[in-house]
Design a binder for these strands. Structure first.
Lengths: 207, 207, 207, 207
DNA sequence: TATGAATGAGCCTTCATTCAT
DNA sequence: AATGAATGAAGGCTCATTCAT
């Protein structure tokens, strides 16, 4: 990405994109290196030249997915909004992002099967998240101060809830739809879930 | 399971148990048929005799996991409890069950990667869940009648939220812990999450 | 070799024979696992079932080759012969064996390229050779006693010389023939070398 | 080597040196073209520009190794020394050269695995060796004339013996040490071998 | 002269599955 | 009911070699 020629960087990126798609569809064990190279229109050998192994490629893809989400999340500027509005935006963003990026969900699922064995080798990801919790804490404090939020809320628990409300819905939509006998895939279902999730969080936060 | 001799039924069950463990640890693609037979102390050939293929074995394991959870959930008898207590029990049960059965979480993750392709072939699972939603609807109605619950709650959305509050936490505990830099594995963390989840649901349900 | 069924033992042996031929022809790195399986008329998978890896197969083949040579060498019963005759037999045997078993030579060459990395893992081979040196020492002592051998001979050095006189000739016959411009491959050349080797050793041993 | 610019000649030589080391360590099949280029600090493409292929590079390296040894051997001027002294010098030189140049030994081993297929394509090597045999024959004749050597010695056989006494010891030192349970690597072991080898040759040559 | 990028064949190994007993 | 042996397809990875600059 840095010292690479434009052509090499393009090949590298194509491999990365193809890997994201393949890993998301089939998981780490199910993904096929040949298929990734084919999708990338690249030679299999280049995959190893740039990433070393299937597993290192996995980690690179995973780190990229985290970074991409946090980049958008950062752009929300929750600290500049009124508390309730900030929370609403956070909930909506997480749900929409998750729905728009099922690959991210799939990567996380797989990575958790491996007990985060790969992510633990990453250095950048934890650094991405430490500021976020501080911002959420600040929003909660402002809301409590203004009398619109309850006072006893743990930012970490709340963040997990916010993400979980959307993530679980999207990640498990197929088994949920099958078990519960309802269609959960379309935009209408998503909008209904969005409204519900916002109500849950804001309803809970009422003093 | 029916017309089998006791010895055969025992072998079948050992294979099932071994498969659950192996699938949970490594996923569908990552699981090894040899390893399952080894763990079961059974000959690989028997696996094929009883289940036909790795994929059919997967489905059988999955159905068993769903049935086991619903059986315990049914034993809660939410319809016999006061509304708020019923909800609390439902939240607590789901969190605790999920935490106690990470294999179930792992199976669901995998199955969703496959867009529920296997579960869709199942017939028993949807039937398990249809009564549950009716029961939750009834609890909500009783709570609204009694003035302790708000009136606009969709039982399906609420159930997804209840399950999701615990499931997401448990299923993604490894990536969450790594990204957020906090330990989420022990009983203390679980109790904190439990308290939070109950407060979220009951806080939201306030009229 | 022990707890195997006759059929399995036969397959195992065919693989071993095929591996010996393939390794001798092409070396460890040059040998092809596919080719070994093909030559053995066995499925490639069985090779891994019985030997674990190409490298473990190599070691097994190597140990077998050592054991086979020492078994024949032991049958010479040098301790029962007159000293000069014992030495002559030892020289002739080593030359003839080496010439008849160019695979053994090829294995040793390869193994020395790897600085005996595989052989060092073997336990049986050193045990095979320790009695031999004692026997040679005894022959030397008897010869010196009888006044037909010089007195200052180191058994280890002598054994290396005896083996080397034939081994180097056979192992390097192709480069020697090319460099020196003489044919060294046939029975006549072998007999000439045999006579020379015996004369060198017995000539040297004269008091 | 001829019409090359100084810079090009230097690159070529670095490749040759690197190839010698890599081939000696890993053999022809085991050597890696990438590794040779890396060791040489040269681009892989230059290797092909100068030598055409891995195999042609092998032959060039091999020819160079032969030429280097013969150049030193020629400098001994055996024809100018008293017969016994000439023989001693020849034995000592061969042992010491072999010990000092294990790469040469490794190359020969490999080449013999291929039945001298590459060396046969060489034209220069046989020409190097034809004078040597004449010189040894002359020394033997002088020694016989003077009554210090026996009369029935074949110069070709003797040369093979002289080289073999050292070569086998050095080439097979790792397997020998492992099988015989003695350390053969250091200077002390080398000196012991040297003394033995000289005694064998001169002891044999006694009339 | 030199280089970074790319290639396709092939290697060792592993897998889910089936045969014969 | 159970088993040991076998299979063929494929998977991850590496290699010698060549292209384009």
């Amino acid at each position: 990405m840095d010292g690479l020629s434009p052509r090499a960087a393009a090949t590298r990126q194509r491999i990365l994109d193809a890997a994201l798609a393949e890993f998301a569809e089939k998981g780490l064990a199910g993904a096929r290196v040949d298929e990734i190279a084919l999708r990338a229109g690249a030679n299999k050998r280049m995959l190893y030249a740039y990433f070393g192994s299937k597993e290192e490629l996995w980690l690179t893809v995973l780190e990229g997915a985290y970074a991409a989400k946090r980049a958008e999340e950062r752009a929300l500027c929750v600290e500049a909004l009124p508390p309730a509005e900030a929370m609403r935006r956070l909930v909506e963003f997480n749900l929409r992002y998750t729905a728009a990026h099922p690959e991210f969900v799939a990567l996380l699922n797989q990575e958790n099967i491996h007990r985060a064995a790969y992510l633990r080798k990453s250095e950048g990801v934890p650094a991405l998240y430490s500021p976020l919790l501080g911002q959420i804490g600040a929003v909660l404090a402002r809301g409590a101060e203004a009398g619109v939020f309850r006072r006893d809320v743990d930012p970490v628990q709340l963040y997990i809830t916010i993400v979980g409300l959307g993530h679980f819905f999207v990640a498990n939509q197929f088994t949920l739809a099958t078990a519960l006998g309802t269609e959960l895939g379309g935009e209408a279902a998503l909008r209904a879930r969005e409204r519900h999730a916002v109500e849950v969080v804001l309803g809970y936060l009422r003093p």
